[in-house]
Every structure is written in structure tokens, then in C-alpha cells.
Computed example of a mutant assay.
Amino acid sequence: MTHSRASRAALLTALVAAGALTLSACGDGGTSGGGGDTNFVTGTGGVETVPKGERRSPEKLAGETLHGEQLDVADLKGKVVVLNLWGSWCGPCRAEARHFAAVAEETEAQGVAFVGINTRDPKKQKAINFEKDYGIEYPSLYDPIGKLIVNAFPKGTLNPQAIPTTIVLDREGKIAARSLKALDDKGLRKMIDPVIAEK
């Protein structure tokens, strides 16, 4: 009986770990994990948004950055936060990286903070080289197996489901918008400018 429980526990643990890795690598889109009862609105360009009064905050989104510093996204409350899920091995991530670096610099004075979430890079150095190559100066949380991502975004929210994914948090730290594809500077501004303009 004890052996059977241990086997079931091991199987459950394996299934949870497998679920953490189901983010489709370099995908172009999909639906959220929330089912049909959500109030997400899909706009042009595949950006999904949530009306202001119906937004939810991610769970704890904190950890070590690629450069070994501690970062807690909750400390950025009061700013519009752009979260970008990326990997150095991902072609669409490379395509959007320079746009993100430029828009991060352009919008800093407007109270916007960018935070990367690097995933599936087993060695930090490749990810650090990626940041250097593309001029990315904002911090990236290091999440090599996707544990942080799975734990931070509850079911029924605009959670990451592809790499790259971009999620915008409003000034209250709530999930306002999500894109499941690579973005250029215009697409990124179209996604974040309405959140910047909110009062």
C-alpha cells in the first residue's frame, strides 16, 4: 500500500513537471488556460486584454536574475510592467529582442519597467550572451525549467503558453494584456500604450 502511494506520488510529480514544459516552444498563439468563462478580449494582432475591473495579479513572481541578483516583480507596483518570456535558442525571440530593448529605453520615463523571464536555457552564459548581443539592459529572471512561470500564473489568467510570450501588468500589478507571438516595436507599443494611458 505504501509503495503504491509512493508510486502515485512519483507519477503525479512527473505529470506536474511535464505540465511545466508544455509551453509550446516558439509558438504563434493559442488560448489561455481559463476555459470559456473568461472575459478576455482578443484584439487585433492576437493581443488579449482583460477589462480593468476583472484583472488578477500573478502569484509570487520572484527569484534570481541571470546576473545573480534577487528580483521581485511585486516591488515594481506603481509601474506598468512588461514581462517577456524568452529563450536564447528561440528564433522569434531573437527577432523581437532589439525591438524590446529599444521600447524599454523609450518608455522608461513613462513609468514602464521591462523584466525578462529566461526559460529553457540550461546554462546562464548563453542567455547572458543573448542579452549582450541584442542590447538588452533590463533584468531577466532565470527560470530554466519553467517552475517560476507555472507557479506565478494561475489558471484562468492570461498565462504564458508559448515562447515568446509578452504579458503586461498594470500599475496595480494585475495582468492587463498578453501576446503569444513575437512583437516588433509597433506591436509592442500598441499593446502597452493603452495600459500606460490608464488612470
Rank of each mutant, 00 (worst) to 15 (best):
I145W: 10
V80P: 02
E108L: 11
E59S: 08
P139Y: 07
L169W: 12
A10D: 12
I192C: 10
T38E: 03
E198T: 14
T42V: 07
V168G: 09
S88A: 10
R56I: 14
N159F: 01
D72M: 06
K123E: 02
N129Q: 02
A25T: 12
N39D: 07
V73W: 01
F40Q: 01
I145F: 10
A74N: 03
A25C: 10
E137L: 14
E137V: 07
V16T: 09
P139Q: 12
R56P: 15
A97F: 13
L61T: 13
K132Y: 00
E105G: 14
R55H: 13
K132T: 02
G45Y: 12
Q110H: 07
F114M: 00
A6T: 05
N159L: 06
K186P: 10
D75C: 11
T157F: 05
H3T: 06
A74R: 08
Q110D: 05
C26I: 14
E64N: 13
K77S: 13
K174A: 07
L15W: 02
L141G: 10
L21E: 04
D143Y: 08
D133S: 01
T42E: 04
D133N: 00
L148P: 01
C90W: 04
D170G: 15
G30V: 09
T2W: 04
P194R: 04
E59K: 13
I145H: 06
K181T: 07
D184V: 04
S88F: 08
T65I: 06
A177M: 04
D133I: 01
R120I: 14
P58G: 13
G36P: 02
K174G: 00
E108Y: 04
R5T: 14
K186V: 06
T44K: 08
K186E: 08
G34D: 10
G30C: 13
G68M: 02
K52G: 15
T31A: 04
D37H: 08
V73C: 15
K60I: 14
G135F: 15
R8Y: 11
A20L: 04
I175N: 06
G87M: 15
A17E: 07
K155C: 00
V47R: 07
K79E: 15
T22L: 11
Q161R: 12
D37A: 15
T2I: 04
K52N: 15
I117T: 13
A18D: 00
V16M: 09
A95I: 09
G63Y: 12
V103C: 01
G34A: 02
S140G: 12
R5A: 09
G29N: 15
V73I: 02
I145R: 11
T22D: 08
A109P: 11
T65M: 05
H99M: 05
R171K: 13
G68V: 04
E48Q: 15
D143Q: 10
P139H: 09
F114L: 01
S140D: 08
V73P: 02
T2E: 06
Y142P: 00
R189F: 08
A177T: 12
H3Q: 06
S88L: 10
F100G: 03
A25M: 15
P160F: 00
G46P: 15
V103Y: 02
N151L: 00
